[in-house]
Amino acid sequence: MSSYYAADELLVAYLDNQLDPQQRRSLEQRLADEPALAARLALLERSSLPFKQAFAPLLDDAPVLQLQDRWPLAVPVPQRGISRRVLIAAAVGILALGVAGDRAWQHVNQPEDNWRGLVAQYMALYTPETLAGFEGSPAQLASQLQHTSERLGIALPAPKLALKGAELKNARVLAYDDRRIAQLTWLDARFGPLALCIIQQPGKPEAAQSERRQGMNVVYWADGSHSFMLIGHNPATEMATLAERLQRSLSV
């Protein structure tokens, strides 16, 4: 747990522009190389989440000494207040310990579209250069699709994932809380990174709906066992067409 806390504090310092140039370059290299760390950054970047309100009623009951012993701070905390950096890192840590209780969870674990928000912030880090280095062989891509298919319980045949004007670059499994998110990424020749993300989420089938997140267009739907999210910089009408094709292909 202590390593998670240290990473969270470093990431919040990055978001607050509190790192020196060398530290910032070093962290940005890690973000490019470590998908899990980049996903963690996206989680912490959701500054609109009401961490302060969620945890305010719990401050008197928080096991401060226990937390300090378990997670010593890398920098002194001013006695007159708590910085955003320490507050967010500690809040995430407290959630991980499970000492926050239902009141905090109700504030922080808001609607089920949280996973779409997390994916959008993660995808905002992508550029065409991010995907330019993925030049795997057809056999490697087939292996990735097979692995992703097995982990998510959904068939992902490569021929049914072909999109006009976009090259499928990779398939992998990310983590969101204790759940897995499949991410299939294309490089669109005109609009850049494009991704289909899938999460196992039993429930009622839902027709495709559109929204915008992080300056990108999103189309999302559900088939009763999985929820899907297509996200990219393509125009909204084109995204709807691509989503319709994928929805039709993956339902067979």
Rank of each mutant, 00 (worst) to 15 (best):
A42G: 14
E45I: 02
V92F: 14
A155W: 01
R85S: 05
G153T: 01
E238K: 13
E112K: 09
G93R: 05
I198S: 00
R40H: 12
L168Q: 01
H107C: 08
H147Q: 13
L67K: 05
L161P: 00
L73V: 07
Q209T: 13
L161F: 02
F55V: 15
G133P: 01
L37Q: 06
E34Q: 15
P205A: 15
L168G: 03
W105T: 15
D20S: 04
F134C: 07
Q146C: 04
P205Q: 12
I154D: 00
W221T: 03
T237M: 11
G98T: 07
F51I: 11
V108C: 11
P128W: 02
N234G: 02
P138N: 01
P157V: 01
D33S: 10
N217S: 11
E211T: 15
E34R: 12
G133R: 08
R24M: 11
L152E: 01
Q66I: 06
I82N: 09
L73Q: 13
P193Q: 07
Q201R: 14
P72A: 12
G232H: 00
G81A: 15
P57D: 07
R84L: 13
R70S: 13
S137R: 08
R213K: 09
L19C: 03
H107W: 14
K204L: 15
R84D: 13
V218Y: 02
T148D: 02
Q68S: 13
W186R: 08
Q247P: 01
Y122H: 05
M229T: 03
S227D: 12
G98Q: 07
K164P: 01
Q200E: 10
E150T: 12
V92L: 13
R24N: 10
G224N: 05
A39Q: 10
A32R: 15
R116K: 12
D16C: 12
S225P: 08
A90P: 02
L15Q: 08
L41N: 02
Q247G: 01
P159D: 05
D188Q: 04
L152Q: 03
A222H: 07
V218F: 02
L58Q: 15
L125I: 04
A62P: 02
P138F: 01
A139I: 08
P63T: 00
E129I: 05
R151C: 08
A13Q: 14
V108D: 04
P202I: 07
T130V: 06
V108E: 11
W115I: 08
L184W: 04
H147K: 12
S3H: 12
L141E: 03
F134Y: 15
Q18D: 15
A54D: 05
P202T: 06
M239N: 07
A132W: 11
D20R: 06
W71G: 02
H226L: 00
S3A: 11
A171W: 01
N234I: 05
P76Y: 12
A236C: 07
L152S: 03
Y126E: 12
Q23H: 10
A38Q: 06
L125H: 08
A54Y: 04
Y122A: 06
P128F: 03
Q18T: 10
R46L: 14
A166N: 07
M239L: 09
A139D: 13
L44V: 10
S48G: 14
P193L: 10
W186H: 06
P50C: 04
G165N: 03
A243C: 03
A195R: 01
A240N: 12
